[in-house]
Design a protein around this nucleic acid. Structure first.
Lengths: 336, 336
DNA sequence: TTGTAGGCGTTATCAA
DNA sequence: TTGATAACGCCTACAA
């Protein structure tokens, strides 16, 4: 059995209150009794029980992480960023894998709440109304990492998706393309659908190119639908394509090849996310990179501020993204 | 403030004992009172406090994960496997990133112990004596995932590293090579050094090829040292090389090219671990794959058995590995 | 079947 | 400066 504060008290011939005091430096204790207590702690091999302590002080120094899939690209980096900062501030982390499924998310949030976590960092492409409601209800600080909710109710850390998409399209324009197609995310996805499409539109409008709805085809981030989308775009004779995910970009390239054209010779393609697919695929795919580690680190830092009730200058942090140029826009392969 | 069991009791006009009973189905309660309690729970929005419960029952249904780097290849898959099974058995997971540093490992183990985790799953290339001692001292079930300790004191799940290395070398032999070099891990590393070298020796001996110490050069899994090691092997005119890590294999290939030879035309190379490097590098590298997800899943399953004190048929599980053939042994690139 | 009360290991208030 | 003691929220004999 582990030694408790009582055992230490008995050993040091003081009250448990005194032991608690030296443990927390909470009040002045004579150097002599302090030493006695310290000796007793060593002798008994005492270790404080964090459960009891947390129960009393109503803080666990633990935060919950809701993540779609820790084994997919992007998230491990984010989590690493979170963990590094958490460790720096002596927080521990509950890892919860949800595959973005509503029931798993709801269930985990419930459990995290029961385990009295001090806060929750949520990750995921899109955040459902039900999940939002529940996150709201449990009444602890929430931070969205790499995503955001429509009403900006929760603090979050993310990139500017509209701007990212704008940059991608602008790059295609700079390469001389006039007829640029887009394979977007689901139109009802506020980020991958709406924002990225808006960035596309803005870049076009800035270049005084009239927006044609037929050049934006809805995708779902997956290969199959993107392949079909690309076939449609080919009917419209596009000379470049921006896809809202790397997987869709790869599928688009396949569709292009299967239709007898070539990338980058005939058509240029840009993807999104800089996943391993973007550099494994041949041709390697020009893409937008999100600063995963930083998103995690900044999210956790934001969380610590929330927990410490520090004043916060900005509840919605936008981190810079980056365009990574590769073969699919004719720039050739990077040397490593 | 959150409702407690007391509030529910008051609302349902019963004692807290009764509430606790319906919460845990621990004793027979009249259907009627049960319903009253259930209603009261709903009405008050009561959620059990897992801290208080754990303090009482001395179980947290939480396990700690010690992992070198969640953002490096291999580990995210392992952790995913662990999490899936943990979730299945209603366990939560503390994620602890250590970069394999002794002080971070020691510190996290201490904290996990204070937070009263029910068990710890340890990951890392090598497990230090001090860490071993501490893991032992805290007196809870430990499982080593993807590694092992010299004395097999702890239960573990891993591949057979000797056999893996044996398979790699045997494959090189089957390709007609006679003079096979090896770049091993540190000689004092029981796995990457000793076991993998032993597999190499065994394959040679089985092929009646005399073992020449000069053909085994010590590496440290990293590129730089492996590059120099390869230069030495070239002086000995090897026609194939087995490296104990993909990074070393890549460095070896670079050394070969820099010396005016070519892979796979002149020399064949095999790596270890199937990291992204092995398929990103050109030529792509033939390598040994460890079943990461399964290592995690089986480790966690083993842990649940340990925690439930179920009888365990095998404390040391060996999972099958796989040789993945790529360009560096002349097999050409795989189609995806 | 239900209620009372002690205890899990702390912290913190109030006296002494 | 130190010591009793009441919480924190729950479980569980033991009684009723």
């Amino acid at each position: 059995m582990n030694a408790t504060i009582k055992d230490v008290a008995r050993e040091a011939k003081v009250s448990i209150a005194t032991v608690s005091r030296v443990l927390n430096n909470s009040a002045v204790v004579t150097d002599e009794t302090k030493q006695r207590v310290l000796d007793a702690i060593k002798k008994t091999g005492y270790k404080p029980n964090a459960l009891a302590r947390s129960l009393k002080i109503q803080k666990t120094h633990t935060i919950g992480l809701i993540v779609p899939d820790i084994s997919s690209p992007f998230y491990p980096e984010v989590v690493r960023g979170i963990e590094d900062i958490a460790s720096m501030y002596s927080y521990n982390i509950f890892l919860c894998n949800t595959d973005q499924k509503e029931d798993k998310e709801m269930n985990y949030i419930e459990i995290l709440s029961e385990k009295q976590v001090d806060g929750i960092i949520y990750m995921g492409d899109i955040i459902r109304e039900s999940v939002k409601q529940q996150l709201h209800d449990i009444g602890i600080p929430i931070v969205l990492a790499g995503t955001e909710d429509a009403e900006s109710e929760f603090p979050n850390v993310n990139i500017d998706n509209k701007k990212a998409s704008y940059d991608a399209v602008k790059y295609l324009l700079s390469l001389g393309h006039k007829k640029i197609g887009m394979i977007s995310g689901p139109f009802d996805d506020p980020i991958g659908g709406v924002q990225r499409t808006n960035g596309y539109k803005e870049a076009l409008s800035e270049a005084k190119i009239r927006f044609k709805p037929s050049l934006v085809v809805e995708g779902n981030f997956k290969a199959r639908q993107a392949y079909l989308a690309m076939l449609k775009l080919l009917e419209n004779n596009v000379d470049a394509v921006f896809a809202a995910s790397d997987e869709m970009a790869a599928a688009a390239i396949n569709a292009i090849f299967d239709s007898g054209f070539s990338v980058p010779e005939d058509i240029h393609v840009i993807g999104f996310d800089n996943t391993y697919l973007s550099y494994m695929f041949r041709p390697t795919i020009t893409t937008i990179q999100r600063p995963a580690y930083d998103i995690g680190a900044v999210s956790m830092r934001l969380m610590t501020k929330l927990l410490a009730k520090e004043p916060i200058d900005d509840m919605h942090v936008i981190l810079p993204h980056q365009l990574i140029v590769r073969e699919s826009t004719g720039y050739g392969e990077e040397k490593k």
